[in-house]
Computed example of a mutant assay.
Amino acid sequence: MDRMSDVLELVPSLKAKGEAFVLATVVRTVAATAAKAGAKAIIRADGSISEGWIGGGCARGAVLKAAREALADGRARLISVQPPDVLQEHGVAAGEEREGVRFARSTCPSHGTMDIFIEPVLPRPHIVLCGSSPVAVAIADL
């Protein structure tokens, strides 16, 4: 069994427990990178990577920051971790967001680029109904 299968097999149990987490997926790489497209990791609410791998320290800080933000606001995001010269070549700064892509600076000596999709998986909200009024019954039916 490969590592990607391990990551995806953990998702249903985390959802069943009602645990919030992020599924991070490398969607594109350019030049030399440690992780390749398709690599996945589960990032828990405490910031730990509990399963999978999406690269080393060069991308880790940017990914964990985006994961924290995604868990806070519930929105998916795409981050592009690029070496400083590539950011400059494209006319963007680290931390800047353009057309739905947030850019981050990579410090890797390989000078590769990784684009990572950050997908928050949040527990379903629970509602407690008190009483048996027609409104409460209608809401319970929903």
Rank of each mutant, 00 (worst) to 15 (best):
I42H: 01
S133N: 07
E89A: 15
L64W: 09
S106R: 11
T25G: 02
K17W: 04
D46Q: 09
V7G: 00
E19R: 06
V137E: 12
A35V: 08
L64S: 04
A76I: 04
S132Q: 13
I43T: 05
E9S: 12
R105W: 05
Q82T: 07
S110F: 06
V135E: 15
A45C: 07
L142P: 03
L142R: 06
A93G: 12
V101Q: 05
I49V: 14
V63I: 13
T25C: 02
A104M: 07
L78N: 08
A140T: 08
I116D: 01
A94D: 14
D46K: 03
E89G: 12
R60A: 14
M4D: 13
V7C: 00
G38W: 01
L71F: 02
R124Q: 15
P109Q: 10
V92G: 01
L122S: 12
K17P: 04
A70G: 00
V22A: 06
I116F: 01
I79Q: 01
E119S: 13
T113V: 15
K65H: 13
D73E: 06
C108H: 14
I116K: 01
A41P: 00
R77Q: 10
D46E: 04
C130Q: 15
H90Y: 14
F21K: 00
A37W: 14
S13F: 09
